[in-house]
């Protein structure tokens, strides 16, 4: 009797389970499509959950990315060594000439530094906060046609934080937008979502360096009366407190046709090693309104 009951229960379960399984198979596809669209919308709204998922996956795969990028890095290093060997003589001559020029500059710089020190002590000048540098290797490249970002093999355990500036030996590369334990993602200055406050070194005109996914980001919000010309150096302004001031960004390419574009100093399309600046951000003082309010709270009438 018990066996008969079990058999009946089993057959009835399978009778019910079969259509449910079929239904689940039919709807799983639709469910996954909706999940993909939902994830896109959440990512658009800067969802913390999506960012965390991205950080976890990147962290998990970064050792593998580092491992697989080794052969390419070795070949790249060998090619560069060969190129260096080929132009050894001309490079030596160029460096000798540069060394002579730099020695002259060193004398000028020493003189200016001592002058600067004495003037600063006279004026009780508050110096910019010092920055610490963390070196890292690029282990993940942007394989997307519409993204300019990279993954590095350093994370929170190395002192990397979100928002820090990333530089190469030549100039600004971008900023950290997501950090995991052992990896971090850099948003390059050329990415369409990148905005960096900059100023033109000679004219001191402020602007925003806006990425456009091309190799030549443009200068937005540049004053109409700005006296900029081709070849002018562009550096970070330090406004907003995210980037330290004075980091070299690039040179102005064309300033005539309304849109001012710049050529970044850093070779962003073949990044291998970068330095992350651990910069002590400047905390803005409280506004007058909030000061009045806090005073009121401290000493009520």
């Amino acid at each position: 009797m018990a066996r008969k009951l079990n058999f009946r229960t089993g057959s009835s379960i399978s009778r019910f389970a079969a259509p449910i399984k079929l239904l689940a198979h039919r709807f799983i596809f639709l469910f996954l499509i909706l999940t993909a669209i939902g994830t896109m919308l959440l990512a658009r709204a800067d969802s913390i959950a999506v960012e965390k998922a991205s950080v976890i996956v990147t962290d998990l795969f970064s050792p593998l990315l580092g491992f697989f990028s080794r052969p390419a890095a070795t070949i790249n290093g060998a090619v560069q060594k060969f190129e260096d060997l080929v132009r050894l003589h001309s490079e030596n001559e160029r460096l000798k000439a540069e060394n002579r020029r730099l020695k002259d500059w060193q004398m000028v710089a020493r003189d200016l530094a001592s002058q600067n020190r004495s003037l600063r002590s006279l004026m009780a000048f508050t110096a910019d906060p010092k920055s610490r540098q963390i070196s890292a290797r690029v282990v993940g490249d942007s394989g997307g046609a519409f993204v300019r970002s990279a993954i590095i093999n350093a994370g929170t355990r190395d002192g990397i934080e979100k928002g820090q500036a990333v530089i190469t030996g030549d100039g600004l590369a971008g900023r950290i937008i997501a950090v995991g334990l052992q990896s971090a993602r850099i948003l390059l200055v050329t990415d369409i979502n990148s905005r960096v406050p900059v100023l033109v070194e000679t004219s001191r005109d402020r602007a925003i360096l806006a990425g456009n996914n091309s190799g030549q980001p443009k200068l937005a919000f540049l004053p109409v009366i700005a006296a900029v010309k081709e070849g002018d150096r562009v550096v970070t302004s330090g406004h907003g407190g995210v980037f330290p001031p004075g980091l070299p960004v690039g040179t102005i390419l064309n300033a005539g046709d309304g849109t001012v574009r710049i050529a970044p100093f850093a070779q962003l399309d073949r990044l291998e090693f970068v330095r992350v600046l651990s910069y002590e951000k400047i905390v803005p003082p409280p506004t007058t309104g909030s000061r009045i309010l806090s005073k009121r709270n401290v000493s009520p009438p």
Binding site: T35, A36, I37, G38, T39, M40, A43, R44, V50, A53, S54, V57, T58, F61, L65, G140, S142, G143, G144, F146, V147, S149, I151, R185
Partner: peptide, 9 residues
Amino acid sequence: FLVGTPPGI
């Protein structure tokens, strides 16, 4: 997530 494209695409 690895390439950096908007998640879901």
